[in-house]
Design a protein around this nucleic acid. Structure first.
Lengths: 345, 345
DNA sequence: ATGTTTTATGTAAAGGTTTACATTCTTGTC
DNA sequence: GACAAGAATGTAAACCTTTACATAAAACAT
């Protein structure tokens, strides 16, 4: 038997002895086709192993059933977990997920933006904190867009994530309640919206607890482990040290932990360290990290639901979707006062 | 001015005053079109902001310029780094990467397999260790497939990865050279090809160094942190302990580190721990993990190159692509003999 | 039996490209 | 100046679906 190329709807129609229109209907609107015919068609489909050509469908339907997720870095476990949620929700609704790794490179962003212009994707979920490069120029032709985790400033793009200010507030409050009075804030990039929101929460919490904000205790980082490490080094040049570190994300908190340990300090005896995000690895540090958890998978799922509602023009309530954060208390925070003690041993 | 839908090739042709065939040629075979005409066409393209409809192209060309990567778990940093390489190589050659998270679920695998049958993807990079569910039935219609990291047993599918046996050998040799005589092997799932290869390397190394293989020191794990933890617990029920642990991957090594630390042991004084992979976090454990590094990004790039050569029918030498491993010595391995010492303090 | 409604099926267009083939125009050769 | 070869462009088919519309058949009402 000759090896046939993959069967088309025409092959099915011929074998079933009906027109191609009927085949299509039997598949998509079974109610509109007589019972007997439907059976013949299904038999023919089974026999040929027919699978509709998705490209032809997309062309005809002007919809690819694909959603593009734009991330600065897939290998970042924080994003990876969001992607898991996005994927789950997408496939539940019959959509596929296209993942674009931008590395914050404008050219890459522009390339991916073209995916929607060329109909490869029906919408974009942004985790980059900004519209893709080139989006402003084609504003009229923009597809549905939502922002997960990191809100897009200035633009009207629905946001799905957590209340970062509130998260920072409960974290810092926890430190204050433990007795800390001098708490450093290790920020992400200064212009980053997450950095800014979490800083605001930090200041608010201090204010509410009647503590002053000491500008010297606010340091810029970059959300990386190395950034956390460096912040500690810079701080230790000064004369007046904090007793606790609130880091704008877990990666930096890990860096802080590492730097402190290298200097011979014991956490949480000498210093407390608090992170943000609760990435999977946070429970494996020494000591395990106390942190503010973001429900990453849920964020991903909610973002995708919103996206698909937009794509399918379902009624969706305007405004952001805010999911709850949770303070996860582990071993890296404790009462202050041991400072110098452990070191003296 | 009325808001036009995205421009088609026809709009461009009209504005440039040429036929659509000429527009297409001007774009894809500029040499076949007169200089003057080409300019007119380019001007028209710029004016309309034309982007070719990728679906129509795919339909016509029978190629989507997309490659599907199948992974059991995107959130695993090991895979994430491979994906980075896949993506980089793909986009260098004008292809997009579609990522499928299978969770080893047969239905999900079958769904993704359909992506190629329906022309959504031109080929599949497998990191699942087995052909996707449903592949056997449609063997004739299978697209180009390559296996990255984890070879596919029984099937002829090009493999791109490292020599796992060799990697295990150099790791274990390192331990033996440090003076260890009783080395435990914490395996992945028993049927997993990686587990098997690394076990073989472990046994070979012991043999070469004139040491016996003690079956009691070989424990099943599952490549997870928890699995590493449990292996330690199971081992500590026995009377004769090893002085070192060789773990089939870093996650389990981290679990071992955690379990040991919880029991009050100091690594590497009481025990040495060796991992495999060198995931990003391995340098952040306490102590930092000694491990056998796989060049993950390179593996991803090589796998994609191979894939695209197959898709584009370029001549590609048969057989696997084996990349070098590297022993990364950090703080979790050292000479044995301190056993019980640190604990006594 | 006739006419009307409902149901089932078929015909053909449309969706946007690319390219084989046909046609027209240039250029060059003798 | 006639003719051949080569270059530039156009025409139309093909890729595979879905669906509006047309038609045919069946069911029903009178």
């Amino acid at each position: 038997m000759k090896q046939r190329e993959t069967a088309t709807i025409e092959d099915v129609a011929r074998i079933a002895g009906v027109s191609i229109a009927t085949v299509s209907r039997a598949v998509h609107h079974p109610g509109k086709v007589a019972e007997a015919t439907r059976k013949k068609v299904n038999a023919a489909i089974a026999k040929t192993g027919f699978t509709a050509n998705a490209m032809a469908q997309s062309l005809r339907n002007k919809s690819s059933k694909m959603i593009l997720a734009l991330v600065p870095d897939i290998s970042n476990t924080f994003f990876a977990n969001i992607l898991l949620g996005l994927e789950a929700a997408a496939s539940r609704r019959g959509y596929g997920l296209l993942i674009g790794n931008t590395e914050n490179d404008p050219r890459t962003e522009a390339t991916y933006l073209n995916y929607t212009r060329s109909n490869k994707a029906d919408g974009i979920v942004l985790m980059t904190g900004h519209l893709p490069y080139g989006a402003a120029e084609v504003r009229q032709h923009l597809p549905p867009i939502v922002a997960a985790c990191e809100a897009i400033p200035d633009e009207y793009v629905p946001f799905i994530g957590v209340d970062n200010r509130h998260g920072a507030r409960i974290g810092v409050r926890h430190l204050v309640e433990l007795g800390h009075r001098r708490i450093a804030y290790i920020s992400g990039p200064a212009s980053n919206i997450l950095s800014i929101d979490r800083l605001a929460g930090y200041e608010e919490a201090l204010g509410q607890m009647g503590l002053p904000v000491d500008r010297d205790l606010i340091l810029d980082g970059d959300f990386s482990i190395e950034g956390g490490r460096l912040a500690v080094e810079r701080l230790f040049i000064r004369d007046s040290l904090p007793t606790a570190f609130f880091c704008a994300n877990d990666d930096m908190a890990i860096g802080v932990l590492l730097a402190l340990s290298k200097r011979g300090f014991i956490v949480p005896v000498d210093f407390s360290v608090l992170g943000f995000d609760d990435i999977p690895f946070s429970s494996c540090t020494t000591p395990p990290l106390t942190t503010v958890r973001q429900p990453r998978r849920l964020i991903g799922e909610a973002a995708m639901e919103k996206m698909l509602d937009m794509v399918e023009r379902k009624p969706t309530n305007e405004g952001p979707v805010i999911l709850p954060v949770e303070l996860i208390i582990r071993g890296s925070t404790g009462a202050p006062g041991g400072f110098g003690l452990s070191r003296a041993i």
